[in-house]
Amino acid sequence: MSDTTPLARGPVAVATPVVRDGWELDARVATGPLTLSDESPLAKVHVRAPFDGASRAALGVGLGRTARGDLGTGDVLVVGSGPGEWLVLGAPGTASALRASIEQRLARTGEFTTVLDLTHGRALLRLTGPTAARVLAGVCAIDFSDAVTPDGAALRTSLAAVVTDVVRDDRSGVPSYLLHVERSSGQYLADALLDAGRGSGLEMTGFRGLG
């Protein structure tokens, strides 16, 4: 048996490491308005259920939209990420409880559902700033204007040739996008975004959390 404390690491290389809640985080603090952060420590629970059944009502949001709420573990962001698919984001360390809570809620619907903890299986980046959409326009053909992709919109598309769930989740009125990809593609996507954003002053910053 091991007598060491496990240390969790995100998919993006850390320049200034600091350990918090069992995770190795980046302590950098950006000085500019356009930032990219690795939010992978957030709890990520994946739900499969009928597209338009009672589970959808229980989760509070449908395809292509997001909703904030509390499913029994504190503040969460529920994302209608695909047809019959939801992604629920919560605070670090809450994944197990969140998964159990959702399972319990959905069990009451009687529908065939699956609830998986994919916290460690996915990378989650956050791109924030007034010109964040311009950075995305360098790697994606989607129209990220407010009219087409407003705050609270969610979609699955290709970013720099990587399948990505894009979630518009503004921070205090500033455009902000959560970018959810396979964990193994996290470093690549971060590098591609930093490259696309180098003319715009995009900087890496430390973990920010869901709030």
């Binding site: 048996m1 091991s2 994946h46 499969r48 065939f112 699956t114 998986l116 994919l118 460690h120 299986g121 996915r122 396979e182 964990r183 193994s184």
Partner: peptide, 30 residues
Amino acid sequence: QVHVTPVTTAYASINIAGPRSRELLGRLTD
């Protein structure tokens, strides 16, 4: 009624091979 979820990168996979693999892994697992 089947749900399929790709979890390739949800796990880091390590193969421990060789006549002493049981001995090594036994030091780290319950």
